Amino acid sequence: MKNIGLYFGTFNPIHIGHLIIANHMVENSNLDEIWMVVTPHNPFKKKSTLLDNHHRYEMVYRATEDYDKIAPSDIEFKLPQPNYTVHTLAHISEKYPTYTFSLIMGEDNLKSLHKWKNYETILEHHHVYVYPRISEGIVETQFDQHPKIHRVNAPIVEISSTMIRNAIKEGKNIKPLLSTSVWNYIDEMNFYKK
């Protein structure tokens, strides 16, 4: 049975930090593939800096096309909004019954996992792979001894999509922080310049 790691994010835009973490996770754990799940725009929130779903999916597609074990996913685009991870996991498990699905998250998310809708159900049926965040240091959580939580000693990458968007707006060169195909798409579409 194939074990798929689900890496959720707005990916606005996807950058090399996301790829470094995804690649490290798939190469240094028992995950067979990573699906980069593009989180849809929440219709109840106004966020002008968030590109349309199809543009963010296109960037993830371009960023991952050279990776055999990393793929984009638009699975949440068709689900009712606002959506919860527990619903996505139920939907995706039903759609792909021969796969097992695990979550990938940063330590910062692990700290607030107890506030997630039906987090007990998530931990009952799915494993969670956690990567470190420098801003957090080692965070003690109520889940430290949980058998379904796996800390992976992944590289710490301090790049954020917000930082990239701001740098583009200020006319700075951020090419090294993005895959070439993603940079070309952003440049061609004139994204984040205003």
Rank of each mutant, 00 (worst) to 15 (best):
E120L: 13
L89S: 07
W35D: 05
A154I: 10
P147Q: 14
H55F: 01
V128T: 10
K69F: 10
Y119L: 07
P72R: 01
H54Y: 08
D52V: 08
Y96D: 10
V86E: 06
S73E: 01
K47L: 14
H146T: 01
G106M: 12
P82Y: 00
H41S: 13
I134W: 02
G137A: 09
K47Q: 15
T98F: 13
L51C: 12
K95Y: 08
R151M: 12
H146Y: 05
T88K: 01
E124H: 12
D68F: 13
N153W: 00
A154K: 05
T39E: 11
T141S: 05
D32T: 09
K78E: 10
I159P: 07
N109H: 06
P40D: 05
D108N: 14
N118Y: 10
T100G: 05
L123F: 02
W116S: 04
E120C: 12
I104N: 09
V37N: 00
N83M: 07
A90K: 15
V128C: 12
M105I: 04
S102P: 01
L31F: 05
S102Q: 11
I70Y: 02
V128W: 11
P80L: 09
V37W: 00
T100M: 02
K169N: 09
H41V: 13
T64K: 02
E158W: 00
Y99L: 09
T98I: 11
H114E: 11
Y84R: 10
L113G: 02
P43L: 10
P40C: 03
R62A: 12
H126E: 12
Y84N: 07
P155D: 11
E136W: 01
